[in-house]
């Protein structure tokens, strides 16, 4: 198909026309005020409300660290059970039951 033929075919396409009264309906729709009332926007929390306590706690933490007011970690005692006879866990429960049965 040649370009001229295609142009002829394109020229024969429909020329759509809006239905009668569309312009008036469109203008009316635009001119009518919107009846939908939006919810009032929720005020976002001020960044200071969140940022100030965070900054204050950071400053206090740094001050405590620098001024050696925190207890040294090597003085914290960690208790650990080293008694092998203490029963713990499923295997020991099974062993205890077997002992009782025998």
């Amino acid at each position: 198909m040649q370009d001229d033929d295609l142009d002829k075919l394109l020229a024969s396409a429909s020329t759509p026309v809006p239905r009668l009264g569309f312009e008036q309906r469109l203008l009316h729709k635009i001119s009518v005020p919107n009846n939908v009332i939006a919810f009032p926007k929720r005020k976002a929390a001020s960044p200071w409300v969140i940022g100030l306590p965070l900054a204050a706690s950071l400053v206090v933490g740094l001050w405590l660290g620098v001024s050696n007011l925190l207890p040294a970690t090597d003085t914290i005692m960690v208790s650990q059970t080293t008694d092998d006879t203490t029963s713990s866990g499923f295997d020991d429960v099974v062993a205890l039951i077997e002992d009782n049965l025998s």
Partner: peptide
Amino acid sequence: SALISRHYQAVY
């Protein structure tokens, strides 16, 4: 309204 009257047919 003037814009609508001018262009609604082409947009349609």
